[in-house]
Design a protein around this nucleic acid. Structure first.
Lengths: 212, 212
DNA sequence: AAGGTTCAATTAAACGTTTGTTTAATTCAA
DNA sequence: TTGAATTAAACAAACGTTTAATTGAACCTT
């Protein structure tokens, strides 16, 4: 992929993440990227195709790490849960803008192509997490839980603080002029600790109501 | 409030929830509401003021229930948690469109007025839940947890399924033509059961790591 | 090595819509 | 007769996209 094309994608990601897809004009993108207006149509065909290209670009970029985690036989089920939490918190917080775009697009269903791409990514995540949890259940470490809802809890907890930065800054006692990097460094450890504790309480077979 | 003004708000809510604020034109709203284009400026002043009016309208509409729950001395802390879960799941799912609008606006920060209104609502929710949890901790029923993160878990879990209906339909084995009412009736009990179980594991003082 | 050819990259300008908002005229009940 | 409610029309600005002209480096032929 050419440097210029990639540069446009990165700039578009930032703007879409800030102001939304409809809130960002092609002229905004061209100006911020320092390219001519017509180059966006020239490279991507249309504004919507640009969004599709961005999703493909970021998705391929982030591929494969979960699969490796699952294959690692040295890790206990509990270790895998901890790694999973760290992986998702870091990955989402490192791609904060992109994550907000995907999140917004999940609601609006702009086009079938984009929606299918998003659902495909989510299904793949669900599969990987399902493997980890069922594996822990087979080893009598985890109790029975609603796995898709549990995935919703993991993702939703993280997202509730990534898509509402102004609120998050208040909670974390940060100023409203906090940049993304500062926000992430404060938020990440707190999210990780909370999610690990929550999932421990949620999954531990010793916490099963039937056994009390 | 006049009937016509209220009707415009309800129609705008539906459209904003479906296609987003920027994705909905004033002409869309006027046509769907069956009123003249100029009436929106006449009643609300501008498109953005209309959004503000909608937030005020819905927020006042949903006020006060949590406060009553908190004051009820007959309920145990565990009962309050269960009621809390039921309240939030029902309230969010009954105002699905509005909830999606609020969430989208949390990210984009269209104006200071709107952002402040949203943060105010969230802070009020946080206060009420904080009371319930600290009360349970004082009674030695709940362990120490990160309360703002716990609120994020409750809201985030629900939201992860309200803002991604197409994905949710796949998980719930529903067709893609499922309407909001059907979606809600399938989703609500599952969300409630999962959140109650999760919070039980998360909050129960007997699950404290120090005590094992 | 020089000159000619080719084609992707880039540009400024213009395209036709659609946007949110306003205007000025009209309706209609009090 | 008054004034709020309602209308069709028009407004300028912004929108995504296309066009047609120009650049400039790579390639080929002599």
């Amino acid at each position: 992929m050419s440097d210029k094309r990639e540069h446009i994608l990165v700039v578009a990601e930032e703007l879409f993440g800030e102001k939304g897809f409809d809130g960002t004009s092609v002229r905004d993108i061209a100006q911020s990227a320092g390219v001519n207006l017509a180059m966006i149509s020239y490279y991507f065909g249309s504004k919507e195709k640009l969004l599709e290209a961005l999703i493909v670009y970021r998705t391929e970029y982030n591929y494969g790490i979960l699969e490796e985690l699952n294959k690692d036989e040295m890790l206990s089920s509990w270790d895998k849960i901890d790694r999973l939490v760290e992986f998702y918190v870091d990955r989402i917080l490192n791609n904060l803008r992109f994550h907000n775009i995907m999140y917004a697009e999940s609601t609006s269903a702009r086009s079938n192509e984009i929606m299918e791409k998003i659902i495909h990514i989510k299904m793949r995540n669900l599969e990987q997490i399902t493997k980890i949890i069922t594996d822990g259940q087979a080893k009598k470490l985890f109790r029975q839980v609603d796995i898709p809802m549990t995935v919703g809890t993991i993702m939703g907890t993280i997202t509730s603080y990534t898509q509402a930065k102004a609120y998050g800054c208040q909670i974390l006692a940060l100023g409203s002029n906090t940049n993304d990097e500062q926000y992430r460094s404060k938020l990440a450890p707190r999210l990780k600790a909370h999610l690990k504790q929550t999932l421990r309480g949620h999954l531990d077979i010793r916490n099963d109501d039937n056994k009390k």
